[in-house]
Amino acid sequence: MNAVVPLKLMIVDDSNIIRRRIERSQQIDRLRVVGAAANGREAIELFERTNPDVVTMDLTMPEMDGIECVERLVAIKPAVLILVVSALADKATAVEAIAKGANGFLCKPFTDRQLNDALAELLQDA
């Protein structure tokens, strides 16, 4: 039988409530939260320190926004899986995030089930 390899999850959002909500609500057995960042700049530093496999990424943040951060993280580690979790509901933003290297898009507000379904879908090929 193959052992399930744990995957490291980093949460990026400028809202403490959303960071805590994602950490509390995610129920994917394989995922272990290794840290959370409040903006793109903090995320890059944390990413280099913890080398996560999976990232949830807000888009509207101070310092460095999520789109730029996605691009930077993918440049550091092309295999990283990024789920954008954002209130920006227009299709063009989702398309741009995917074009920059994100693998999925979840619109805020979200239910626990929607979060877990989105993460499960992201990990299908991991």
Partner: peptide
């Protein structure tokens, strides 16, 4: 944090109708 997040979410969702040129701040 919550009051800001509610305002952010409602404003961001409005881009579904207003489009991406409806630019929202933090």
């Amino acid at each position: 944090d919550l009051i800001g997040e509610v305002a952010n979410t409602i404003s961001g969702n409005a881009r579904r109708d207003f489009g991406r040129d409806f630019v929202i701040s933090v």
